[in-house]
Amino acid sequence: MDDMHQHGFRGWLAAPVPASAAQARAQQIWLGCKRFAANRSALAGLVFLLLLVIVAWLAPLIAPYNPFQQSLSARLTPPSAAHWFGTDELGRDILSRIIYGTRITLYIAVLTAGIVAPVGLIVGTIAGYFGGWIDLVLMRIVDVFLAFPSLILALAFVTALGPGIENAVIALSLAAWPPIARLARAETLTIRKSDYVAAMRMQGASHLRIIWSDVIPMCLPSVVVRVTLNMAIVILTAAGLGFLGLGAQPPSPEWGAMLSTGREFMMNAWWVAAMPGIAILLTSLAVNLAGDGLRDVLDPRHD
């Protein structure tokens, strides 16, 4: 048990009795990270996602070609040393397009998460905290949205709004917030009854303050886990929208849209459809792995 007596930062993190709240929190996070890191598949998922972020960020440096540069004479050339993933129907380099496409995929996923998490949290905690009519009305709305499979709802919205990335994000968010709201409400219901919240009320804390500083932080871990896992679904649905031509518009190298052009050349140019599909599969796999790992750390009640 030598490391127990280590000094410096590691020692501080490993101290058996934390000396301050900050140290306690840091220790908790450190433990969580250690648990996450012990889960090899989760780690692999996270590393892959980090890699994607780097690829998206450094796309212009990494991509061997300009993703928009056409070369009609070199259209549909199979994978080769010059074009690792081959070229598409306008002679553009597929690898470069996939590299630039990570930006779109991450943009859609992060933006959707950024919309869905707060909206779901706010609606869910308000409904759960206040109960009564507010709860009834909000949950009815959630029910109406949940009555549709998310793809169908997103399809209908994006047809109504018109194609495009921003509209796809709106449609995906409209389809994805209700389960988050329902989860946040369920969490809130258990917290609302706690003595702690009652004590805060007695001390005269306002409803909003209690929701903001006590209820929401308590809900946060399970919401984060759920939103992360939902990102995999969002990525797949976004690709589905792109596949149907309702997502990102040309010449944007969105993976689903690339896949859909590949469909036309299925018989004579398999790589046009295969490559973006693999990219989608790996990304959503990584999100799922990382999400599962995160759940084990943050939401141990699950399972």
């Binding site: 928009f68 056409q70 194609p163 518009q249 040309p250 010449p251």
Partner: peptide, 19 residues
């Protein structure tokens, strides 16, 4: 997309919308 690319080289900013 072909027109879009050439127009870009000539300094025109074209959005292509499929419907």
């Amino acid at each position: 997309q072909h027109f879009q690319e050439n127009a870009a080289e000539a300094g025109l900013d074209v959005t292509v919308e499929r419907m």
